[in-house]
């Protein structure tokens, strides 16, 4: 996969860059179906002085429409929450394998590494309804040269 740019994870720019890579592969995402969800990605220890950072990703139709860093509590369908080290391992694995290997998919990591947080079960189940698209989105990060804090 061609690298677009170098970005630091976590940052709004990093998610935008992944969104740009994903957009170039429109056919894959069209085949996977609509991604009608707004989700949070929470990076524990990903902020200055070890603070937490949360990014809100709004998908519409087949693409990432908008991403911003949450200033406080925001309404999302669900949040994927994990320590920075876990996200880093997942992103490095995706980059090395041009897509997550068997032990680094979102759904695999959600058993014990990534917490799925939702206000009700219907919203939690949305994660599973659009799982293939979200995995393809994060797999697109193989096309982004990523740096990590520290």
């Amino acid at each position: 996969m061609t690298t677009v740019t170098t970005c630091t994870f976590p940052s709004t720019r990093w998610f935008e860059a992944v969104g740009e890579v994903a957009r170039r592969d429109e056919e894959t995402f069209r085949k996977l179906g609509f991604i009608d969800t707004t989700l949070g990605v929470s990076v524990l220890g990903g902020g200055p002085a070890g603070g937490d950072r949360t990014f809100v990703l709004s998908f519409g139709a087949y693409t990432l429409d908008e991403v911003h860093e949450a200033a406080g509590a925001e309404s999302v369908d669900f949040t994927l929450r994990a320590p920075l080290a876990a996200w880093e391992e997942m992103i490095r694995n995706i980059r090395e394998n041009d897509g997550a290997d068997l032990h680094h998919t979102l759904n695999y990591l959600h058993f014990g590494v990534i917490d799925l947080v939702a206000e009700d079960q219907l919203k939690a189940d949305l994660f599973f309804r659009v799982n293939g698209s979200l995995q393809a989105f994060f797999d697109a990060s193989a096309g982004v040269e990523t740096e990590f804090p520290g």
Binding site: T105, N107, Q121, L122, L126, R129, N131, G132
Partner: peptide, 16 residues
């Protein structure tokens, strides 16, 4: 994974 997506839709309909 693909079966999971389908099944989650059915469960969402049933719940609602």
């Amino acid at each position: 994974r693909l079966c999971m997506q389908d099944e989650a839709r059915h469960v969402s309909y049933g719940t609602m």
